[in-house]
């Protein structure tokens, strides 16, 4: 059912470069292959995993082969989901082993942790909004909307969110009140805490979110293989 829609097979057939085995996919490739937005659980998982790798890189940059320098994200093509469920930022111009910035590049520059988080929040929202018309808005669950609101720094001045979610009352409980305690996101760790608090058991967050991203990679590759065979 994921591939339903007239554009999906054509998009999928041309969605990946090369025919050999792949160890990672960009978020853009995933969106194009499915021709639909990511689901909420995948959004939580990509946020958690991406902030985890950014945090690890920030703490010990020399030990990370998939190094992720601090810079704003401009496109889903810069987020890579790996076969093992790791999520990293794609190397950019000027990074070790990469060509220097030139004409037509995205013009990366080093920036603060909160700026990276803000840009990640925006990219994740756009992945949730993928394919929707300009005058349409996806109804997100309040906790995820709150996470993105805080990441993207779009929270209203009084700290309240826009409550356009009609079914909000039925899911707000003490657990949500606990999550509201983090009113300002300042670090990758804050994002990871909120993502972990989304789960019934917070200690399961590393394994759970890695499994979600691993499944996202595997299912996308399966879809690509399937659609390629049909073509």
């Amino acid at each position: 059912s994921s591939a339903s829609g007239s554009g999906a097979p054509a998009a999928a057939a041309g969605g990946l470069d090369g025919g050999g085995p792949r160890d990672s996919l960009s978020l853009e490739e995933i969106l194009r292959l499915y021709n639909q937005p990511i689901n909420e659980e995948q959004a939580w998982a990509v946020c958690y995993q991406c902030c985890g790798s950014l945090r690890a890189a920030a703490r010990d940059p020399r030990s990370r082969p998939r190094r992720a320098p601090r810079r704003r994200l401009e496109a889903p093509a810069q987020i890579r989901v790996w076969k093992d469920g790791t999520v990293t930022l794609a190397p950019g111009p000027g990074d070790p082993g990469e060509p220097p910035p030139g004409a037509g590049t995205l013009g990366y520059s080093h920036c603060t942790e909160t700026e990276v988080i803000e840009s990640l929040g925006i990219i994740i929202y756009k992945a949730l909004d993928y394919g929707l018309k300009e005058n349409e808005e996806r109804e997100l669950s309040p906790p995820l909307e709150q996470l993105i609101d805080h990441m993207a720094n779009t929270v209203e001045a009084d700290g309240s969110n826009d409550e356009g979610y009609e079914a909000a009352d039925e899911v707000i409980d003490e657990e949500d009140d606990e999550k509201r305690k983090i009113s300002i996101i300042r670090s990758y760790k804050d994002v990871m805490k909120l993502c972990a608090a989304h789960l019934p058991t917070q200690s399961e967050a590393p394994n759970h979110y890695q499994a979600v991203c691993r499944a996202l990679f595997a299912e996308t590759m399966e879809l690509h293989t399937f659609l390629s065979k049909i073509k």
Binding site: P37, E137, E139, T154
Partner: peptide, 23 residues
Amino acid sequence: KEKSLYKIKPKHDSGIKAKISMK
């Protein structure tokens, strides 16, 4: 488990989509 379908509503001027688009 989350349903694969999601609800779509008209874009609201004070909604998250409008706020994100202004970033």
